[in-house]
Design a protein around this nucleic acid. Sequence first.
DNA 1: TGAATAGTGTCTATGAGACATTATCTT
DNA 2: AAGATAATGTCTCATAGACACTATTCA
Lengths: 246, 246
Amino acid sequence: MQQDATESWVPPAIPIAVDLVILTLRESRFDVLLVERGIEPFKGGQALPGGFLSSAGEDIYDAALRELHEEAGLDGSALHIEQVGAYGAPDRDPRGRVLSVAYLAIAPGLPEPVAGTDASAAAWTAVDDVLSGHVKLAFDHLAIVEDAVERARAKLEHTPLATAFCGKRFTIADLQRVYEAVWGADLDLRNFYRKVQRVEGFIESTGTERREAKGRPARLFRAGSATALHPPLTRPDRTPRAEEHQ
Amino acid sequence: MQQDATESWVPPAIPIAVDLVILTLRESRFDVLLVERGIEPFKGGQALPGGFLSSAGEDIYDAALRELHEEAGLDGSALHIEQVGAYGAPDRDPRGRVLSVAYLAIAPGLPEPVAGTDASAAAWTAVDDVLSGHVKLAFDHLAIVEDAVERARAKLEHTPLATAFCGKRFTIADLQRVYEAVWGADLDLRNFYRKVQRVEGFIESTGTERREAKGRPARLFRAGSATALHPPLTRPDRTPRAEEHQ
DNA sequence: TGAATAGTGTCTATGAGACATTATCTT
DNA sequence: AAGATAATGTCTCATAGACACTATTCA
């Protein structure tokens, strides 16, 4: 980077924004947070929360944390956050050129559609409705959601990311619901219990239980110390296996 | 993104650069292209090829292609190129704030250290020497290389990316050398042949052969149509398996 | 003791990894 | 036929996936 510049040449500067793909599970549904746009372009349309850097000195990650707080009322220090990538097509914003850095945030299921914030227009929306095109998004936000969701789905296989969708303590059934909702696939309960418990450092027992009115109490776990899952939990083959034509 | 702006507020604009992590295999060595910096800061130091957008209207991907041509003499349309991410720490460039979008490019082994270009100072360097810190890089380029290399290593498992390191036609042994060099691990030849040939759409036979002076001729293949590998080629466990303590 | 939820065990098939020999070509 | 390189087959073990029953609690 940083080419040989003549004294007179000035590299073009472009406004920088951050966009947030905040994912969560609410009642076993895989949701993304969208806000209704209050201004043109796409006024009244649905979009990802986000915004411009507040100053030329603000770190992009800090900007993501700030928007997370301002637009979603969430505390980023408690969440899993990672960068998805930069989206910089010259025509992505009709008002003029903007380069946006997208972040993925995973939040434990929040009962309320987030209130007391800037963006009172924020609402949880089914990820499926977005990906299917049933809910239309402004700008290139659909592509951003696609990339972020695929990232989350893939990381569920190899990392303990699923625990980020759960609270501090969770049951194995809770964890299974995460996998099923994010992957959009049903998993066998017995195989899931076996695999999850075999992976070293994925979940550790708290010794406590959760009882709900009826039925046997469920044991509670917390996230373990592993950063990678060995062996991984693989997604069910959507390409079942080459139809042994014969 | 695109917050409610009052008429008077103007979002801060920042110079945008692209950095390229160009990876290849040369004589079974896994190499990255570095350039010697001609100007301060880090004058005389090693850095990734790259540069600022040429104009405020240039697409970032196009800028990556342009730099690939200018600084490495490579034709991007023939290469695998993907974005790694945005690097935007406010202090990453001592001259002032720059946001850089990093791209990963995979090139078939090129015999010569790339000549007849802008950057005659460009040179292939062993990736291991960079990752080990033996070769020091300017700015935050080490972090960029780490991210890009990990991306490449991971994608080798699930995608036919390895074929991007090879020419149009290659032997199975060529392909194995790619995996061994990028992963830094020895693979069993017999298992490799079996697995590679079982994966549908990974490689397809050309019916032709390559003969080198002596020995049995090797069959030549070309990249198949698959975009994902089923089943994947997994990296040898560096974390061998929980030492069954007992 | 019945209803409700939590948790486990076994069998089969497939892939991973270790390992040595046969095949084809040139000189 | 000797030398060199290419290619393959078998065995064992671990994991994936299909599948049904037992355990614990509360009313």
